[in-house]
Structure formats: C-alpha cells, structure tokens
Amino acid sequence: MNAENIINLLKRHIIEVGRKDILRFVTFIFVFALCTMAFLPIEIPMQTAPLSIIVLVLMYQITAAAIYATYPTNRGMHYLMIPVSATEKFISNSILIYIYYNALYLGALFIGQILGIGIFNLISNYQCVYTLPNIVPGMIIIILVQEAVMMFSSIYFRKNAFIKTILATFILCIAIMIFNTIFISVFHQMNFLEAASCVNISNVTIDSIPDWLGFLIITIIFIFFNFMTWLRLRETEA
C-alpha cells in the first residue's frame, strides 16, 4: 500500500468536485441558518420535528453526493483503470465518505445554527444562546452503518444506486415484517391478520436489546458492508 497513491486519489477528488462541495457547504449553512431562524421561536434547534426532517433529508443528500463522487458508475471504467490498488481506492473513499463528507455536513450544521441564532438575536428582542445539539454516539454509528451500506450499493448497482438502495432497504424491512408476522402466527396459532396486528416495528429498536449486543450487531454490519465493498471493488467489471 502506498500513501502517495491515497493522497493522489484524495487530491483528484478535491480538484474534480471540490467546487461543488464548497457550493454544497455554503448552501447547507444557508438552509440550516434559515431553518434555525424559522423554528427558534417555537423550540430549541434540532428538537423540532420539521427541522429534524430537514436535517435528515440533507444528510441523505450528502450521502448521495458522497457516493456519487466516489463511485460514479458512468465513469466506472475510467475509475477502475486508475493505477492504484483496490485497497488504496477503498481507503481513500472511506476517508471521503466517513470523514470528509460527515465533517462537511456537521460543520455546515454547526455554523448554520450559530449564524441563524446570531441573525435571530440581531433582528429580535430575544437573546438566545447556542447549545450544541445532543448527538448520541449511537446515532453516529447508525449514520456510519447507513453510509457503509450506501458505499457498498453504489458499487454493486450500476445505475441509480441511491434510489435502488432506499428501495432495497424498504423491501427488506417489509420482508422482515412479513417473516415476523408468519413467525408469530405459527408459534402463537393466530391467523395472519391477527398476527400482523401484533407486529409493531417501533418496538424493534436498538433500545430493546442490551447495549453490548446492539453495538456488536452494528459493528458486524459495518465491517461486513465495508469488507463487501472492498471485495466488490476488486472484482467489479466494467
């Protein structure tokens, strides 16, 4: 493994899409500042439902941007022919997705909210103080897992990887629910509709299992998808 190759790959990324990323960063700051100003009179930032949705949508947007920038399928052949190893490509993409884009996103969120509060204080009689959003470590891990899945699917699907992943995840959830319903109906001797009414997806959260087990499961999923991405990158054809 050659560190220079990884640096060259990162430089290539910055030269190719750096401008777009700056534009994205500034747009996000603007959106977060506006949202903070709009919701500040109602509740504390990050805890209002509409703002959380905006935060989530922008997070998906940045994930999509990250995977497009790293594994765009329309130039797959060109990318595969860059003379660096699959491991070096994988490492540089991991740095971009897990560190660079997350830092870009969180930076925009932080600056946007401070800016929003500052402007709000200037134009109103309130004197709001900024408090850091309560970011739970579990939430960060889930984001990383989601990005790992996206990174894998972006190299697995040749076209429209982002939409296909969302759909695949949705179908998987439905399949789990159906499997769960069948399981309940068989073991509790209920008919399918009665069993379906017992299935409540909201009960199946990370809180309902011990912390260590949840952490272990998520770590395994994270490692699994990263390993699959590395394998797929080695074996993909153009």
């Binding site: 130039r75 052949m77 003379p83 070096e88």
Partner: peptide, 22 residues
C-alpha cells in the same frame, strides 16, 4: 487482478470518453 504494477503500464482509451468538468 488489476495489480497496480500492471495498471501503471497500461492505458485504455475507451470509445466512451470520460471528460469531467475540468
């Protein structure tokens, strides 16, 4: 295997060109 040693000494100019906005 697409080893780096091989890729460094081979260039494939495909018909579908990749031309980024650079």
């Amino acid at each position: 295997l697409r080893k780096t040693s091989m890729l460094k000494d081979i260039y494939f100019l495909s018909e579908e060109m990749y031309a980024p906005a650079l």
